[in-house]
């Protein structure tokens, strides 16, 4: 059945349609960002770079982007650091209630973000802690913690356990085995886990909106605020820069570590 030409054609059509649906908004954004019109129109009637110059007009955009970068970087580092021991336990050991604990660790993927946001908000209100960028960081860590666990488990599952035994038989202590053999095997999982956490944190809106208070603001919040007041293509220009940078990073990392295939397999 899978060799059938008709079937293959159907699959190919579906595949290309899905690709088009995914890619079209991105292309639309890029094209619109170069438009000369005051409003978002497609196809644009004239060309201009004005909207790129206008990015600075978005309220607090520089400050907000820096905070988003800081929070996203720390989120990536913390979630990956927490995910390594969890992934090792899941991939290499049997322990009581393993299935339940694994499901719990992966649950942030399945629970709606709004629900997580409200839960975290209530938690912080209950603790009475002040709302600042650290609260935001904690929220993002909770939100993204599941992703590095998944990618690191995938890396571990693909790596050969006899490598660790070989290292031990050659005289390496447990810590040395981990440092010289296990960790290098995990690199693709660590990188892709970090990327997932970083990117989800960097453009997260629904959680952040619950956790920011006066003075603290993030890039997505300011971009949304701008969109709700203005209809010009400035956010499109901003997004285009964002898309180009992220695409470049993903291409580089994929070339070097093959992380996309890992995420698909995981």
């Amino acid at each position: 059945m899978f060799e059938d030409r008709g079937f293959q054609r159907v699959v190919a059509t579906l595949g290309w349609t899905a690709m088009a649906v995914l890619v079209f908004p991105v292309i639309l954004t890029i094209v619109v960002s170069f438009s000369g019109s005051q409003f978002i129109e497609f196809p644009p009637k004239s060309f201009s770079m004005d909207w790129y110059a206008n990015i600075a007009k978005i309220n607090k955009i520089g400050e907000a982007t820096l905070l988003s970068l800081l929070v996203a970087s720390l989120t990536g580092i913390f979630t990956v650091a927490m995910a390594i021991p969890a992934a090792l336990a899941i991939a290499r050991h049997a322990f009581p209630a393993k299935a339940m604990i694994v499901a719990f660790l992966l649950s942030p993927v399945a629970v709606p973000m709004i629900a997580i946001g409200i839960a975290i908000l209530q938690f912080f209100v209950w603790t009475g802690l002040p709302f600042n960028w650290i609260t935001l960081l904690v929220g993002h860590v909770v939100l993204t913690s599941a992703y590095p666990v998944r990618t690191i488990v995938a890396s571990l599952t693909l790596s050969n356990p006899s490598l660790e035994e070989a290292a031990a038989s050659l005289g390496a202590s447990r810590w040395t085995v981990f440092r010289t053999v296990t960790l290098p095997q995990l690199t693709p999982g660590l990188i892709s886990g970090f990327l997932f956490a970083f990117l989800i944190s960097f453009d997260n809106y629904p959680i952040s909106i619950f956790l920011v208070r006066s003075g603290v603001t993030t890039m997505p919040i300011e971009v949304f605020n701008y969109i709700s007041q203005q209809l010009d293509p400035t956010p499109a220009a901003f997004s285009t820069i964002y898309i180009v940078i992220v695409s470049a990073i993903i291409v580089l990392v994929e070339r070097r570590f093959g992380v996309i295939s890992l995420s698909v397999r995981g």
């Binding site: 050969n160 006899s162 490598l163 035994e165 070989a166 290292a167 031990a168 038989s169 050659l170 005289g171 390496a172 202590s173 010289t180 053999v181 290098p184 095997q185």
Partner: peptide, 29 residues
């Protein structure tokens, strides 16, 4: 423990460290 015994072990699948060169593999012990 295995690392405290002085034994040379060759695995069926060789278990060479994929992130190291031939020289680094041999020098590991």
């Amino acid at each position: 423990r295995p690392n405290q015994r002085n034994v040379g072990l060759v695995f069926q699948d060789y278990a060479l460290f994929p992130h190291m060169s031939v020289r680094q593999n041999i020098a590991y012990g």
